[in-house]
Simulated scan of single mutants.
Amino acid sequence: MLVNNRWVRASGTLQEKPISIQYREDWTLARDSGKYPLCVQIAWHAQSLDDSTGFPAVAEQARIVAFTEHLQTRLEPDETSVVAMMITHDGINQWIIYTSDLEKLKTGLDSVPTDEGLYPIEVVADPDEEWQTFIQVHERIDTTEA
């Protein structure tokens, strides 16, 4: 596998609401390989929020975690795609995925089990050879210690 499955987590606030960003520890290996010129963003608009955290309610979080695991197991084995980042903020969970093959990615998404119903997601894809979508978020993470 081109990238390992170790994730870095950053959390804080954005516009006075909590935000959580997780990204692959060795994401630069995938970017520098030049194998992933297309950026696919998947947005999940939460149906229920925990008022104390601003994040999806516990039951919905469980579905989001399961969906994330499905994304990795369905999209990454042949190394045509890599789930690079996940962002949770203001009721939206977003995945930033880089791919070399939109058709294989679509096939992988279509194979995600829907036994608990369809997922409330929107999917967009754009060329992004330099990984600017990822980098714009990554550069805003304050890694200084308080």
Rank of each mutant, 00 (worst) to 15 (best):
E139W: 11
W27I: 12
G91R: 07
S111N: 08
V3Q: 04
E139N: 15
K104V: 08
L71W: 00
I96V: 15
I135S: 06
Q136P: 00
P127D: 05
R63W: 02
Y23T: 10
A46G: 13
F134R: 07
D126C: 01
Q22G: 12
H70C: 04
A125S: 15
L109W: 04
D110V: 00
D126A: 15
E116P: 03
F134P: 06
T80C: 03
I121V: 12
F55H: 01
H45D: 11
W27N: 01
E103G: 11
F134A: 05
Q132L: 12
A59W: 06
E129C: 04
N4T: 12
R9H: 13
T73G: 03
W44F: 10
F134V: 07
V112S: 06
Q94C: 04
D101R: 03
T107M: 10
R9C: 11
I97S: 01
E145C: 09
Q22I: 04
T73I: 02
D32N: 11
I87C: 03
N4V: 07
W95H: 05
E145R: 10
D142P: 04
I19M: 09
Q61I: 04
P113L: 01
L75P: 01
Y119Q: 03
D90K: 02
W44Y: 09
A46S: 15
R63Q: 14
H89W: 14
Q15L: 12
T88R: 12
L109M: 11
Q61W: 00
L102M: 07
S81Q: 07
K35S: 15
T143S: 09
D142M: 12
A43G: 10
G54H: 01
D90I: 02
A10Q: 03
T80H: 14
R24H: 15
L71H: 03
I135A: 03
P113C: 12
T143D: 07
N4H: 14
E116T: 14
D115S: 12
D101S: 13
G54L: 05
H70F: 03
R74E: 01
I97W: 02
V8T: 15
I141S: 11
D32F: 07
M1F: 04
V3G: 05
I141M: 13
L49H: 15
K35G: 08
A43C: 13
I135M: 06
S11V: 12
V137T: 08
A59N: 14
Q61A: 06
